[in-house]
């Protein structure tokens, strides 16, 4: 397990270093524009899987958290001209509080009731923001980027790096949860909530924890998006498409292992970029929907599940 940890952190450092080098060497802006979206997908999928995968509470509210992250930044920038780190940290804090509130409100609900409640939350928040003049209302709002911080040449390159850091952070947290007693408790309550309680698992507290962490991460991921787009409107920031894509990426990758959502997000995120550019964004969404349904029906454990199967039918006890 220790060797595992060293390998993971080495990988993370190499990844960040590579990203940093890329921002210094590559002059063309397009890879950063496209790459940012893929990184954002990875971070969202990983964050989603903490509640949706490990605990099995299907959250349709990714767009609510993401959108709140976006608008937290919009507000901070228009009110105080707050710098990017402040935006992200504030986003995370708001996301955590929102996760706690959502959890307290909904986690006693089972299955579909929880899912529907998360959609409801999304629409209620979106409607509220739509009616909030200060941040632009339904029409949206333009945002000015401040000067870029060295060593970066362009703001998008910097955002690309920042999002890469968020990805590493999200993965590290998700991996820690997966390998610890928290993960085991969440898995137990996903399989059978009553049996988990009767085995000593404080199910409500664990679910709240998952909800808070997942929410904080999703909001933090949304925060830099305001700067990325230089524009925000409720219709796009709270678009349910984020919920569907995130859920699809996690489930297609597989949630039995922390790496699943990453695999799913890279695969689908790249496919999406390619399809959007070569054909159209509608076709890309169609492919996404079809793949989601196909996987859920045909390979319910996702790509990770398929890998386990290939490796010899059962995963070895890692304890």
């Amino acid at each position: 397990m220790k060797r595992d940890g060293i390998a993971f952190w080495t990988g993370a450092v190499v990844f960040l270093a590579a990203v940093l080098v890329m921002t210094q060497v590559v002059g063309n802006q397009y890879p950063f524009f496209a790459g940012y979206v893929i990184l954002q997908s990875i971070a969202l999928a990983v964050a989603w899987s903490i509640l949706g995968g490990y605990a099995g509470y299907v959250n349709f509210g990714t767009s609510a958290f993401y959108g709140v992250g976006v608008y937290a930044s919009v507000f901070l920038v228009s009110a105080f001209g707050a710098p990017l780190p402040v935006q992200i940290l504030t986003g995370a804090a708001i996301g955590a509080v929102m996760g706690l509130a959502l959890g307290l409100l909904t986690l006693r609900m089972q299955g579909i009731f929880f899912s529907i409640a998360t959609i409801a939350l999304t629409i209620v928040i979106e409607t509220t923001v739509t009616n909030w003049r200060y941040v632009g209302g339904a029409a949206g709002i333009q945002i000015q980027r401040p000067a870029v911080t060295p060593p970066f040449d362009s703001y998008v390159q910097m955002l690309f790096f920042v999002q890469a850091v968020l990805v590493v952070l999200a993965v590290a947290i998700s991996r820690y949860i997966h390998n610890s007693w928290i993960g085991r408790g969440l898995q137990a309550l996903r399989d059978d909530e009553l049996a988990a309680e009767c085995t000593g698992v404080p199910t409500l507290r664990l679910k709240l924890l998952a909800c808070v962490i997942s929410g904080a991460l999703m909001c933090a991921v949304g925060a830099p998006a305001a700067m990325y787009l230089q524009y925000a409107d409720p219709g796009s920031a709270f678009n349910l498409n984020y919920s569907v894509t995130t859920l699809a990426m996690s489930l297609i990758g597989g949630t039995a292992h922390w790496a699943g959502p990453i695999i799913g997000a890279i695969l689908l995120g790249t496919t999406q970029q390619v399809l959007t550019v070569t054909i159209s964004s509608e076709v890309n969404l169609l492919v996404l929907g079809l793949m989601l349904v196909l996987f859920v029906v045909g390979a319910p454990e996702g790509i990770v599940g398929l890998i386990y199967k290939l490796r010899g039918n059962q995963k070895e006890g890692e304890i």
Partner: peptide
């Protein structure tokens, strides 16, 4: 695909219908 399999099915059942809804939307748009 879902009811027969039991336990974990509800999670995927929800995702299944969510996916179907999404496909219908996109097909109509196309």
């Amino acid at each position: 695909t879902f009811e027969k399999r039991g336990s974990d099915a509800s999670v995927r059942g929800i995702a299944f219908f969510f996916g179907i809804a999404f496909i219908i939307e996109v097909v109509i748009i196309l």
